[in-house]
Design a protein around this nucleic acid. Sequence first.
DNA 1: GCGGTTTTGAGACCGAGTCTCAAATCCCTT
DNA 2: AAGGGATTTGAGACTCGGTCTCAAAACCGC
Lengths: 127, 127
Amino acid sequence: METEYETRPREAIARILRAEPRFFSASELCTRLDEAGTPVSRATVYRTLERLAAKGEAALRLNDRGEATFMSCDNGHHHHAICRSCGRVEDVACSALDNFVERLHSLHGFQLDDHSLEFHGKCRSCV
Amino acid sequence: METEYETRPREAIARILRAEPRFFSASELCTRLDEAGTPVSRATVYRTLERLAAKGEAALRLNDRGEATFMSCDNGHHHHAICRSCGRVEDVACSALDNFVERLHSLHGFQLDDHSLEFHGKCRSCV
DNA sequence: GCGGTTTTGAGACCGAGTCTCAAATCCCTT
DNA sequence: AAGGGATTTGAGACTCGGTCTCAAAACCGC
């Protein structure tokens, strides 16, 4: 009946994700886990990340090489400002997009059901 | 001294890209090229797409599986509205984002130098 | 057509991600 | 705290998109 267990690998992964507000790739996590003395197999890292993303506890993002990266994340639709120097991520609300969406519909006849918006630059401490 | 040749493979690829306003993956292009009776090797397809993207004649986009996809594209910064049913792409200007960018700077201290915005939904003819 | 330069193709290679299945872990029950 | 059924894990095979290599082919100015 699909009970969930709390396991050492899952806790180790959650601990690393929660420690920094930025995206981690699976291989990066493996390295970190090894360094932290709590090694976890690749398969389990992928399974755990997929599970967190499904539960809405992690955000999934494809980096510019097409690799999946994950970040600890609270719920609610919003966008990200990503520092290209340190990787730090800040959340951005998306209210300003409303009139954009309207215009798109009247201009192109497009019926929207999703959008993604991402900003890149330097954060306060990297400028 | 790096002269450029006009070759049969390059022309065949450009022809397919120009025929439809949507993104093609490399493997999809290979299939189309075979069907069109002008087969081109995978290596050449990748090389040609990379070259077109570098010259600004094709747009590069990672789809949700992380695959690189390409579309014939005129110059100038803009965004895309992508039909999730037929894949048709319409260009969208990005003027409305200006005040968004300002707010981001004053609120988070973020200094932006790039952004990406993508809309998903159904186009006029797929609704 | 000749010949130097550029391009191509076949296939080896790489790395991210998935899958399998036996072994290990978890935790409920007694 | 030991037993046992359900869940999770790990090692490694596998898939597939993308890159690289290098000899052969194509291109084009002469």
